[in-house]
Design a protein around this nucleic acid. Structure first.
Lengths: 200, 200
DNA sequence: CGGCGTTTTGAGAGAGCTCAACATCGGTGG
DNA sequence: CCACCGATGTTGAGCTCTCTCAAAACGCCG
């Protein structure tokens, strides 16, 4: 959901850029909201940590994507944002974005962006309901396949992908290996090719 | 997220009411979107069915809540809506709602509604990541506790709650029984009382 | 070359799912 | 009023599958 699709130029001009090291925290659950962030480069993940110390990855935002849109209407952030890689982010102050909402088109485009997020989250929820690691990985691969419906380009490490999937990395490795043995997929570095299309 | 909070009177006037029997389908994934629905009475659940026939419950909407807001921006619905009980729903045609978005306030309120949904879905996602049935139920109870932070009023059957939690009904029953044995909760019919407050 | 993180494979255990049986509770009709 | 019936609620037992702990190969960077 690229910023330029919905945020007017005037509001974009108010953006402030900032660098993050890998592993650095952008904000934490409960922090006062200052605005929304666009990831300019690198990857930033949204997550929550339960009291047993386990992190749930809610979303991994790459370059061009925004995070914390929903927090605009909330006084505090409701999840943690941590840089997965070295990253550059741009902060659009809350006031500037809210002011931009006075523009009809911007407000509608923003609503559409949120609506897309709702759909994405529902898909994620469906995925998390799949118990079987094999089925879950199949679901993930089918969803993330490129335009040809066959090749999946992994953005980060396999370990990161495992966290995004809600699996331990061991289970993920094993499942990938099993799928490859079964001839369902082929791996070449960070690219995975499905040997045949699969229904989602 | 009550309709009257954001949909202007003019658009609300365009609503068409309809009755549903328990188990009746309102729409299915892939159906052309005709608008959004307000649940006037009864309960309607949103879900998806994977190819193994397993249904994932995404949300259960009760009286006063709306479903399919996100689908306003999509040509087709992206999940199934099925009445859990006998229900009455009111359809607000897509065109009427989109027209209402020309009103600044309505558009902003709508965006805020979607933002709240995003937060709710993230919480659900976090919940689904909890493997332990006991912890998941605790999380659920803490989230659904009333203002006193102690009593939870179950809306439907325990079986429905189990589906919403993503557990088999057997596991849910057992967990409730175990929590009661452990003295953490007390059950009186459709009401559950936590014996002490718990952090989420 | 040495160190660190990712990738990979092994073995064991715990926990929820599945199948199964039975109790309980409304609602229905004779 | 009572017997029947379907759905919910409840408990039992076994099995499968992922998680956890462990250890080793691999790749990258200083």
């Amino acid at each position: 959901m690229p910023v330029e699709d919905w945020l007017p130029t005037t509001a974009r001009a108010a953006g402030v850029e900032r660098k993050l090291k890998a592993g650095e925290t952008l904000f934490r659950l409960g922090d006062k909201t200052v605005g929304l962030y666009e990831v300019v480069a690198g990857r930033v993940r949204l997550g929550r940590v339960d009291r047993s110390g386990h992190e749930t990855v809610i979303y991994v935002a790459g370059a061009g994507e925004t995070i914390a849109e929903a927090s605009l209407f909330s006084p505090v952030y409701h999840c943690d944002a941590v840089a997965s890689t070295e990253a550059r982010v741009r902060l659009y102050p809350r006031s500037a974005v809210l002011a931009a909402m006075n523009d009809r088109k911007a407000a509608q485009a923003f609503a559409a962006t949120l609506a897309r997020q709702v759909m994405t989250l529902r898909t994620r929820l469906e995925q998390r309901n799949i118990r079987s690691a094999r089925e879950r990985v199949r679901h993930y691969l089918a969803l993330n396949a490129g335009a040809d419906g066959r090749s999946v380009a992994l953005t980060g490490t396999l370990k990161e992908a495992a966290a995004e999937l809600g699996l331990t990395h061991e289970a993920f490795y094993r499942t990938l290996a099993a799928l490859e043995r079964a001839g369902e997929i082929k791996r070449t570095g960070a690219k995975i090719t499905l040997t045949r299309r699969r229904p989602v």
